[in-house]
Each structure stands twice: as C-alpha cells, then as structure tokens.
Design a protein around this nucleic acid. Structure first.
Lengths: 144, 144
DNA sequence: CTAGAAACATTCAAGCTTTAAATATTCTGA
DNA sequence: TCAGAATATTTAAAGCTTGAATGTTTCTAG
C-alpha cells in the first residue's frame, strides 16, 4: 500500500520532468530553424565567452565526453575554434568564430523572443526559482 | 543587450533541468540495483495497469518509437507481454508478467524509500506542484 | 626535486532518444 | 460504401549521453 505522500511526490517528479521537456522542446524548435541540433544550440548558448571544455560541460549539465562530441560538430561547421589554453596546457580554450558569434546572436534572439515559461509571471517565476534552488541538493548532482 | 528578465528565465530553465537530472539520477541509482536501466525502470514504474504503447510513451514523456525500444528490452526479460488490444487491432495491450509485477513492487518500494525532493516539505511541494502545473502548457507538450 | 595524486581532454562501447518513413487499422464524411 | 484522413505501432538512421579507459599536464606532499 503506497502512501498518499509518496504518490504526490511521484506526480511532482513527473511534472518537473514534463517542464524540463517543454523547455528542451522550445530550444529544439528554434535550433532547427538555424540548422542546429538541440545539443549544439545549448552549447552555443552557453558559450558566453572563451572557456574550457569542462566549463562548457558544466554549463550544459553534461559529461565532458559529451561536450567533446558536441564541440566536434560545431568545430566542423566552423562555428567554434579549439585553441591552446593561455595558462594550462592540458586544457583547450573554446572561442567562437565570426560565423559562430553571428549565429549565436541570432539564436539568442530567437530564444528570448518568447519564453517556455510564459505561463508564469515574474513573481511566480521568482517563487519557483526559490523552490528549485532549495530542492536541488548541491553535492548530489552526480556521483556525489 | 539582453534584458534582466530574459537572463532570469534562462537561469530558471537551468534549475528546472538540474532538478530533472537529480530526479533521473535518483531513479537510475535504484534501477541498477534491480538490474534495470533508468529507462526500463521508468517504464515499469509508469505501467500502473494494462495500457497501450502510446499511453505508456505519454506517461514516460517520450516518443512512441522510444517506448517500442524500451518495451522490447522488458519483453526480452520476461517482465512485460504485448497482447492484442481488446477493441483496437492497431494497438497493443501491455501487461506485466508475474515476474514483472513482482519486480515493479520492489522498484516502487526502493523509489519511495527516500525522495529526490527531500529538500522540500509537503507544503512547499504543493506550492511547487501548483506552479509547475501552471507553467506546463497542455497542448505544447510536443509538436503542438 | 620527485613520485604519486589529481585534473583536462579525448576515445570507445553501449545504451537512450528522436525523426522520418512504412505498415496496418480505424475513423470520417460524401 | 468508399476514399482519404487520422491513429497505433514499428523500423532504420542519425544523433545524444554516459561511463570506463587512456594520455597528457599540473598540482602537492615529502
């Protein structure tokens, strides 16, 4: 016999997942407009400036090996360059090309034109943000 | 120049994604205990009773073709049966085997033992649920 | 200084997910 | 009735993601 509280929590997990999917679909729809996949668009969006592979992976919430995969694609399209890191020879320095920077601008414009969170007003969004920050256990992101 | 509101929304999307990942990791950890992958465990969990492929896919928040893939695995393990649908010859009727039902019980027990939402008390969870329900656009789940 | 631990990036294998296309069945309207 | 639209499922191809090595470079304790 499952308790009501457990059922409510499971339903809540489903809602979190559903909203995450809605957000992902929002990105995907706009990405294909620019000839990008969702993963590529996410990488481009997160590349706010020169950064290392690991840093990009963290911003994308994925494994470094996955970032390698995605950056490979973007590099082949001439949107990103892998340069030597100024101070750490282990690391790469990811830099947008002129084409990449231009496409990123168009992408950001598309992504901010309308929001996947349009159902919530700014006040509600702040409440949601507070709850999410509280729900996310810092150390437990992965293999913690 | 990007507006503060847009930046806040993007950060909020990141938090939603982060919590979804935390929930997924929670499922994955317990799934491997039973020799299941995360996707298989999700399918088993959502199979609350006999249902069609499409219905399962919707409960799993994935494409029907993906449900086919996952159900294939569960069927090979003897946990699920694909039967003829009583009234619609296009559809399949998914039914748990005795083994499948038993494993599902163990899975549910593991999943409810501790929650991936332990950071929130019941009252906060209700607030979160209300916000998520409001944020999720019914028709826009996919290609809407 | 130096050996071992740690960190950065990559490769590979395995599994997950989506898209598009194909088949079979049901529904709808003339 | 019957043609066309819509629905349920599956297949194949492409792409995504992870986890376990591997090689290189840096850090750290002694």
């Amino acid at each position: 016999m499952t308790e009501p509280q457990a059922i409510a929590e499971r339903e809540l997990c489903g809602l979190v997942n559903g909203l995450a999917q809605q957000i992902a679909d929002h990105v995907r729809e706009r990405a294909v407009t620019l000839g990008l996949t969702a993963a590529q668009a996410t990488a481009l969006r997160e590349l706010t400036g020169p950064m290392t592979m690991r840093e990009l992976a963290e911003r994308m919430s994925c494994e470094p090996s996955n970032a390698t995969f995605v950056v490979d694609k973007l590099e082949k399209q001439g949107l990103i360059e892998r340069r030597a890191h100024p101070t750490d020879r282990r690391a790469k320095h990811l830099v947008l090309t002129a084409d990449g920077a231009a496409l990123r601008e168009r992408l950001l414009e598309l992504l901010t034109r309308d929001s996947p969170l349009a159902g919530l007003n700014p006040k509600e969004q702040r409440v949601l943000q507070g709850l999410l920050e509280q729900a996310i256990v810092p150390g437990a992101g992965r293999r913690g």
